[in-house]
Design a protein around this nucleic acid. Structure first.
Ligand code: ZN
Ligand code: ZN
Ligand code: ZN
Ligand code: ZN
Lengths: 158, 158
DNA sequence: CTCCATTATGTTATGTTATAACGCATGTAG
DNA sequence: CTACATGCGTTATAACATAACATAATGGAG
């Protein structure tokens, strides 16, 4: 479970396989990966960073795929519902899933210096949060787990 | 480390001791708990729930303590910087700290049915997130840990 | 193939959350 | 008193998100 994002890696491959996975999942679950949705996923995938909805919209608009906010928000709704993207609550921004296909509980490491984001996985049933929940009888449906700090590269720079 | 919020407890005492703690901390750190800031903290403390900035503003406005958004945001900035309140990123809302004075990393259990919020504590150096960070050499400065789900009472109701 | 229901998209408007910028007031140190 | 820092009043605007309704494309059922 290495967090993807900070390490050097074959990113072209990363993009390709994620898109393939997304298509496979859509086929299996009868979801429609329309041109707008597919392009939105590609845009998010371009970098391991979170993009604001309006940043995404700007790109889509420049490509003639729609100009009004609902274009972006609908695409993001689809992608997040399908598990192809996640919302980073701490940034009000969105990022492509780095473990598409794997059933996972995402956790994010967000570099405040270079803005890159790595997605790790945690196990919902373990960890301190789950423990606190069990202790008090709380039933967890969804978790938001985000760490803000400095990635290895930015620590070296400082 | 029991999460405060779901259990029945002497809430009047809860409010009183938190305000006392806040005053003590302000004295020690030479922070100024002005009338607006103090009242904002009281308003947040009234219930173990998160309040939107504009909800807080509405109360302050009704009491003649200011009408424009900066009034609320400045008070919230002060309270969160001082550690007297926390922002719930998943709700864009703010809640009084339930462990004021204790040096802690907050984690929240948020009931999606009744909207109440319990604050638990986690240890920054343990847990899966810290583990993932260590693995990749990431330096954590702040964490956002929030669980959405059903509190014990709302589970029983369903 | 045609019709129908469903899903997706276009469009306008608005709601919600948060900050910038500037000036005045007040408290404190030299 | 003066200089500086901090808090507050006020106006305006930026940034994020959704409501509501019209039109179009898609994909089955018959
Ligand atoms: Zn990559
Ligand atoms: Zn993911
Ligand atoms: Zn209480
Ligand atoms: Zn706290």
């Amino acid at each position: 479970m290495t967090p993807i994002g900070f390490e050097a890696h074959d990113h072209a491959d990363c993009v390709r396989t994620t898109l393939e996975q997304a298509e496979k999942v859509c086929k299996a679950r009868r979801l429609r990966l329309t041109p707008i949705r597919r392009r939105a996923l590609e845009i998010l995938l371009a970098e391991h960073r979170a993009l604001g909805a309006y940043d995404l919209l700007a790109v889509l608009a420049a490509e003639g795929l729609g100009t009004a906010p609902p274009v972006a928000y609908r695409a993001l709704d689809f992608l997040t519902s399908a598990g192809f993207a996640h919302k980073i609550e701490g940034l009000n921004a969105y990022i492509a899933c780095a473990h598409l296909g794997a059933d996972h509980t995402p956790a994010f490491l967000i570099c405040t210096a270079c803005k890159s984001v790595a997605e790790a996985e945690t196990q919902t049933t373990k960890g301190r949060l789950a423990e606190a929940a069990r202790d008090s009888g709380f039933h967890i449906e969804r978790t938001v787990i985000e760490a803000l700090g400095l990635c290895p590269a930015c620590q070296d720079a400082a």
